[in-house]
């Protein structure tokens, strides 16, 4: 069927029960990204532990089911990562989603792989990516800030 399971169990579960939705106070990394074309919005906050790894994650999204599910799934993949690892993950995820990754599915955590169906709906890829754009922006700003401090 042409929907190709776009509204399958995993995506709908994340849409209906988004994880890590609570705002994280005083975050080390945070960003907000808006898609003016459709009013979609994604926000992300992260607090790092003493070792510089993600300890608390908050992600919030407004818009269609796909962006909300994507935000929730992304939030689950971030814990324990350093900012550099977050950057690398975002880049790998982007490549994988757009079918450009050499290792295929092995390149991204299993928890994200249900999003593969969105490849069949290219106009919806930007919905998936918006939370990741917020993540990348947040990390970039954090790294710049940190570099400035030294």
């Amino acid at each position: 069927m042409p929907l190709d399971g776009l509204y399958g169990r995993i995506i709908m579960d994340h849409y209906r029960h988004p994880r890590n939705r609570a705002l994280v106070a005083a975050p080390d990394i945070h960003a907000r990204e808006l898609n003016p074309f459709c009013g979609d919005l994604a926000e992300v906050q992260m607090k790092l532990d003493a070792a510089g790894r993600v300890a608390h994650v908050g992600v919030q999204a407004e818009g269609c089911s796909i962006i909300q599910a994507s935000a929730s799934m992304m939030g689950e993949a971030l814990a324990g990562k350093t900012p550099a690892e977050l950057e690398a993950l975002a880049a790998r995820f982007r490549d994988w989603l757009q079918g450009r990754s050499p290792e295929g599915a092995a390149d991204v955590p299993e928890g994200l792989q249900a999003l593969q169906v969105v490849r069949q709906h290219p106009v919806r890829l930007k919905c998936v990516l918006l939370p990741w754009v917020a993540l990348e922006e947040g990390v970039l700003a954090f790294l710049r800030r940190r570099a400035g401090e030294h």
Partner: peptide, 8 residues
């Protein structure tokens, strides 16, 4: 549902 989802 959001308009995007309706459209798809």
């Amino acid at each position: 549902a959001h308009p995007h989802d309706i459209g798809t």
